[in-house]
Design a protein around this nucleic acid. Sequence first.
DNA 1: TTCATGCTTGACGTTTACGTAAAGAGCCTT
DNA 2: AAGGCTCTTTACGTAAACGTCAAGCATGAA
Lengths: 152, 152
Amino acid sequence: MADKATQAPFTISQLAAEFGLTTRALRHYEDQGLIAPQRRGRARLYSSRDRARLALILRGKRVGLALSEIKEILDLYALGDGQHAQMRATRAVLLERAAALRAQRVDIDLALAELAQGLEWIEQRLTVPVLALVDVAIASAYDAEARRRLDE
Amino acid sequence: MADKATQAPFTISQLAAEFGLTTRALRHYEDQGLIAPQRRGRARLYSSRDRARLALILRGKRVGLALSEIKEILDLYALGDGQHAQMRATRAVLLERAAALRAQRVDIDLALAELAQGLEWIEQRLTVPVLALVDVAIASAYDAEARRRLDE
DNA sequence: TTCATGCTTGACGTTTACGTAAAGAGCCTT
DNA sequence: AAGGCTCTTTACGTAAACGTCAAGCATGAA
């Protein structure tokens, strides 16, 4: 019944391996106050609770939260008083993040559109046989702008 | 006919203002070998050609190219020999960028989906009247995982 | 001549999330 | 006792694109 491989107290390298992280990353999270495993001597011992906490941290990372933001949320729940207040605060953070992500998405779409234009421009010059040199001279937006005035 | 305000040779601050950049940024582009205006004494004088080049640089930035990548493309066209070869190289870079952007968009979508889940989770706990505490206890994925085994 | 501006070249600082040594401690095995 | 392995702390390094002084020329106006 009891798994022997990954049980109760985990060493840092066990947890790192399980989540595909480096031990450095885990120590870093600790440095930043995101997690604080017990010690047996100096060595860290991660409990299941710590493991769950780490899972939350990684969730935060996946949605693009900074470690500092994740810490804020985690700290909120540490207080554990007015549940609703914490939830509302967390919701605010997440909504902000969602808005930021959507904004990023828009930027990406714009960038893709501009890229498509550039590619189209190039594709034409690569496709059109040497005959259509006229078109090239006309359609060239870049060159047009660059050559309109050749001062200096 | 001739605009007096922004004409032929531009000073660094003029160009910066026109494109909404800082002079530092322009000097940085120069440091990185992206542009090289003439000098009158030590002062930089940007020609229309430089201005067009800067416009291209900013295009590159908008689509998410690194300055080093923009430089590569620019350098390619500086050679000016086999046109097609340059275009193909540029196309390759742009296609790569497009692929990267699409990948980023997928990541964002995944993040948004995960965020939506988290928000839903929170929203329920905020909405559901105190009566449905049972549901709370059952549905809680995070808590379920965290509480299943409270070792230590 | 003296100022105010605007330009110049260094050159270190910033941000984020770790990477990468370096040097040592603790524990188990041979 | 000597390795060998995993753990520890300390601390500088990294990447990108500039930001932010600092200190000094240069030029046109007063």
